[in-house]
Design a protein around this nucleic acid. Structure first.
Lengths: 225, 225
DNA sequence: CCAAAAGTGTTCCGTCTACACCCATGG
DNA sequence: CCATGGGTGTAGACGGAACACTTTTGG
């Protein structure tokens, strides 16, 4: 016996990453075909086992980095999943983490190397094991938090138009929002600041680009959008 | 190699229970002196290791039943905690569950047998390992949910007065609530129903006892209090 | 008769909602 | 010149917050 808890049994622990992106006015999820047994070939979230020398958060960040080449991503724990037979192979308890990334920051080659794809959340296939449940829970979490936490900016480039921002809200909440009311609320938030730049890509007239000011946000506590 | 994931390492997984009660107009937490090494004698949540033949939820329910003799308790997962050295003994990943119980249902003898006590959440001592963080997170979770989920009834006897109910809200939210506004809102909820019974214990005049009607609640979706 | 808790309505203010038209420009 | 997306204001409804006095009865 090497330690204090020798009489108890150990179990595999993994982390699974629910990676959301935003593209073409839709909320997208990053999934791939599972490349190992059991369940080889099924659609699945990307995950990995927790190593002895890393915390859960570190494991999740490592897996995310492996998958995307990106660090310092917005990430939140969704919860632990521990049904006995949730994994058809052996018993594995998993902790799901939800990450938000800007699709444009994600190198297409890295994506292809991992054999993962962006699928629209309203066209989600059946996923491996209990992964669908994790995704559902992650979406619920996003919906609950988007009104009180500045999530949306993680899905957008640094500079964005108000229309883009509105579309992020609509994609997450799954409902349409009145343009004038939305812009009125945004205007009342001092941490969404107008820049001098104009986007001429999506409209002929051009739209003012805005930026999320992190410092400003730190100042004002708990907003509503 | 007996299975699919043999090359990966396993880890101890435990569940820790954050048990809240309500007594003397205060939100209370159930903690005890840790009875094993390491950390023997420190204030701690009550927990246990997850066995091979039970899910996380089952483990949490077993631990709760062992501790309280009660089943079918209101219980929610708070989250997984997985810092490498969070436990001073060996590496243990733990999943925290928060439960709400009616103090009166808890047999004092069972309580004493386990050497646990109710402490007011504003007099909480330093707890073992990262248990304080778990409690903080559980309270945040309660505060967030109490407005949208019928939590409070789990902390009260089946019949309760409106003043008691209000005190539960005040204890959880940590702020005073206007009596008239509170009662106005309660009256608008059809799943909190008046009974014919009168409580003469806490007031000379007597107060009408109410009951939470679970069926009614199922009907109306998502309230606000 | 008085202390202690129960019970009860109204007004005000701020916030959310609904709603329609003009603007600038590239093709 | 027209199609496309950008940008703007107001009025009414609704919900939340503030606020004080009367009732009952046990001791």
């Amino acid at each position: 016996m090497t330690g204090f808890y020798g009489e108890h049994s150990k179990v595999f622990v993994s982390v699974d990453c629910i990676v959301f992106g935003f593209d073409n006015d839709k909320l997208k999820l990053l999934i791939g075909r599972r490349q190992m047994d059991p369940g080889r070939g099924e659609w699945s979230l990307y995950g990995g086992f927790v190593r002895e020398d890393e915390s859960l958060v570190e494991a999740a960040n490592r897996v995310l980095y492996t998958l995307t080449g990106l660090t310092n991503l917005y990430m939140k724990q969704v919860g632990a999943f521990g049904a006995i037979d949730r994994d058809p192979g052996e018993r594995v308890i998993t902790v799901a983490y939800c990450a938000l990334i800007n699709v444009k920051d994600y190198d297409e080659n890295i994506r292809k190397d991992h054999g993962v794809e962006w699928v629209s959340i309203d066209e989600m296939p059946k996923l491996y094991s209990d992964h669908n449940e994790m995704v559902r829970k992650a979406i619920t979490l996003l919906r609950r938090r988007i009104g009180t936490e500045p999530l949306s900016f993680n899905l957008l480039p640094e500079l964005f138009t108000l229309t883009q921002l509105q579309h992020v809200y609509e994609a997450i909440l799954g409902e349409e929002i009145d343009k004038r009311n939305f812009r009125k609320r945004v205007k009342s938030l001092d941490f969404i600041e107008k820049t001098e730049h104009i986007d001429k890509v999506t409209s002929k007239r051009g739209a003012i680009l805005y930026r999320f000011n992190k410092e400003m946000y730190g100042a004002d506590t708990s907003f509503r959008l």
